[in-house]
Amino acid sequence: MMTRATKYAWLAVIGLVMVACGTKVERIGVEEVRDLSGRWNDTDSRLVSEEMMQDVLSRSWLSDFLRGSGRDPAVIVGEIRNLSHEHINVTTFVNDIERELINSGKVAFVASKQERRDVREERADQDIHASEETRSAMGKERGADFMLKGDISTILDVEGKRQVRFYQVDLTLISLADNRKVWIGQKKIKKFVTGSKARP
């Protein structure tokens, strides 16, 4: 027969166990670093875009172009190839870079190939249906001055449960007028991941 004390002790234990068994949701800051599996995550994307942004705005190509043509350069995003071991969504850090550069007011971005198709469809539609005053005319697109291309590649060194993951992101800014590469940005990230040997 259980005494009162033992009964309450059991209840307390069961209560604690039940609490630990439910689903927990914890909101964390966007800037907080939480690495769970060792794969490419939002922290990596943020580190890449921050470094690239700081680099691209501080180089001489911008001032050279301003001096030469007297207006802001227009950049179009070309192909960013994923040559890595993971299905990485490269558009996240490219979008981050685009947003910061446009917001800085120094660089203009023009729509990429896919985006242009949608815009041109809309314009063609407006040609037929929209009124004369409000219609956006064809043939008035802003041509790009530079194209941003790049790739992301990885080197993996795996031994049993341990691995060293090395990521390298290379972005190049190419002048569309004369094919010169005016800027090359590079970011390297290295991680050491140890897999678990046992689980409960």
């Binding site: 994923n82 890595s84 993971e86 299905h87 795996v158």
Partner: peptide, 16 residues
């Protein structure tokens, strides 16, 4: 290009 990613993962797996 995505198939290439799988090919690289295959390579890592087969080497292990």
């Amino acid at each position: 290009h995505s198939a290439r990613v799988e090919a690289l993962q295959l390579d890592v797996k087969l080497n292990q």
